[in-house]
Design a protein around this nucleic acid. Structure first.
Lengths: 220, 220
DNA sequence: CGGGCGAATTGATCTGTGTCATGGAAAAGC
DNA sequence: GCTTTTCCATGACACAGATCAATTCGCCCG
């Protein structure tokens, strides 16, 4: 594992506050790296202000594109974020010398591509209610996998995103997001404590509401 | 370039007719490969039949995911297609031994990821008219780059997709696609000869209609 | 405690796109 | 040549979600 030693030599940590922009679209990126703690988003904004989130960065997710200098998207810290950074040139050099790193990065990129394609289905074909349910399912699954005891039920988690950020993720307005969350609550699909704490009495039910049923990537 | 020799040894060609399904979602994939000629689509279908295209495969595009056996999407030949295939196991083995191949694949995957994210903006935030203009822009740009003489204007090309396939790409119904194409024609943004042949008198105008203006990845 | 502020909810109304239905045009088959 | 099929265009209408607007909730801060 010599490459880890090498990586260690060029890595450093940076901290960003909630709301802070980590990278501006179009700017030079002098580093690549990965999220250690916290949540960040990748967003693209059209000239007239319409905004679409194109990635949600959770701990362990990679940021930046080796082999390209300009950033293609805004990267914004949603919560306080700690990032593990590598200066770009040394990282690229190391990647060229260390097949294992390139290989690992390929794996991660393929996973991201799959996730992006899932989202294309959500954006293109799902109703507002299904979109919300899909997002909640993802967040629930993520939280469940973070707590490694496997079976924490009733499933509960804190919403890391504002209604507006959810809207940007799902291609909706924040009003529609709010209404659909209320509707899911009225129908008993979810239970809210306050505006940000969600519990899911029946994850299967939520997944049905999300439309991609397929009775599950077994979390049940 | 020893790896090319090695690749040569395990490659073979397959031909598919227009309309034929190359890979069924969920099936085992015994090969990976790339499109040589023709056009294919990557689509996902929900249980109730709603379908979303998640990728458009043009010549040189890669198909398949090393390191995974099941196909995640349907791959369908839109026109007659010739594919260059590699049996999966030998390819994976070769990839493990040959850094250059993994590196190249990473490049391609990152490009695809960028394209997917562009599409997320189209799907999530653009109007029907902008969606159509965006698709036409992509097809126009692709055709222009295929004919390497740089300045073939007035820009003309054949639509490789049916109205329904465009709808699946854009998250619309085929009726809306048809209406918006008619509208763009009436407004002089495009000129149609028959239903499939498009000419674009002013590519700048078309790109404005697409909304992502940014006055261009210079094709002008 | 009260004022101020951002986030969220909820209501009223409007509109872009979906849905349903009909007919035409071009290609494919016999 | 005629029929059948596929693809496309267009009209009438419905509805999901956007837009505009008014409150409310929760939180920070003096």
């Amino acid at each position: 594992m010599d490459e880890l030693v090498e990586l260690d030599k060029i890595k450093y940590y940076r901290r960003f506050e909630a709301g802070q922009t980590i990278v501006w679209s179009g700017d030079q990126m002098e580093f690549v790296g990965s999220v250690v703690t916290g949540i960040a988003t990748l967003t693209q904004t059209m000239e007239d202000g319409r905004t679409q989130m194109v990635g949600l960065l959770l701990p362990s997710d990679f940021v930046g594109r080796p082999g390209r200098d300009g950033a293609a998207y805004d990267v914004v810290a949603v919560s306080d974020v700690v990032m593990c950074c590598f200066r770009k040139r040394p990282f690229e050099k190391l990647m060229a010398e260390t097949p294992h790193i390139a290989h690992r990065l390929l794996e991660m990129t393929l996973d991201e591509l799959d996730a992006a394609r899932e989202w294309m289905v959500v954006l293109g074909r799902k109703t507002a209610r299904e979109k919300i349910a899909s997002l909640l399912t993802i967040l629930a699954r993520r939280d469940a996998s973070l707590t490694p005891d496997g079976l924490v039920r009733p499933l509960e988690f804190r919403l890391p995103l504002t209604r507006e950020a959810m809207a940007d993720y799902l291609g909706l307005t924040l009003e529609t997001v709010s209404r659909q969350i209320s509707a899911l609550r009225k129908d008993g699909v979810i239970v809210l404590q306050g505006k940000r704490h969600v519990s899911v009495p029946d994850i299967g039910r939520l997944m049905e509401e999300a439309g991609d049923d397929s009775d599950g990537g077994f979390l049940v």
